[in-house]
Simulated scan of single mutants.
Amino acid sequence: MLDNSRNILLACALSALAGYVDGIGFLHLGGLFVSFMSGNSTRLGVSLAEGRWWEATGAAGLIALFVAGAAGGSLVVRSRSSYCQCWILLIEGALLAGAALSHAFGMSGLAIAGIVMAMGLENAVFQIEGGGGLGLTYVTGALVKVGQLMAVALTGGSRFGWTPNLLLWAALVAGCVVGALAYPRINLAAIWFAAAVAFALSAVLAIAARRRKGRKD
Rank of each mutant, 00 (worst) to 15 (best):
V76P: 02
T137P: 05
R80D: 13
M107S: 10
L143H: 13
A142D: 10
L143S: 04
M119Q: 14
L48Q: 13
A60P: 01
A100I: 02
S158A: 15
L121P: 05
L32S: 10
G98K: 03
A56I: 12
G93C: 08
N40W: 04
W53V: 13
L172P: 00
F193D: 00
S79N: 11
A189K: 05
V178L: 14
G106C: 10
A16D: 04
A59L: 06
I207E: 10
S5T: 15
A151M: 09
G23K: 00
S38H: 11
I207Q: 11
G98M: 04
A208C: 05
L154V: 11
R6N: 13
L27P: 00
V204T: 05
L154M: 14
S15F: 07
A68F: 15
R212P: 00
L168A: 04
A70Y: 01
I191T: 13
F26Y: 15
L96Y: 03
I8A: 06
A64R: 02
L89T: 03
T42Q: 13
I186R: 11
V177M: 09
G120E: 08
L136F: 06
L2G: 08
N40D: 15
V67F: 12
F66D: 02
V67Y: 02
A59K: 08
V177W: 02
I24T: 02
L14S: 07
A64S: 14
I115Q: 07
V34A: 09
A142Y: 01
L29E: 06
L201F: 10
N165C: 09
L9A: 15
P164R: 04
S74I: 03
V125W: 04
A203E: 05
L29K: 05
A203V: 11
P164T: 09
A94I: 14
A13S: 15
V116T: 15
L65E: 12
L136H: 05
V125E: 04
G179Y: 01
A200W: 05
G161H: 06
Y183T: 00
Q148N: 12
G120K: 03
I88Q: 02
L32P: 03
G39K: 09
Y138C: 00
T42F: 13
W87P: 00
G214M: 13
W54C: 00
I112C: 06
M117Q: 11
A174L: 14
L188Q: 06
L96G: 03
S15E: 10
I128F: 07
T137Y: 08
F36N: 12
V144Q: 13
V204S: 08
L44C: 11
A18L: 06
N40V: 10
V67E: 04
A13E: 08
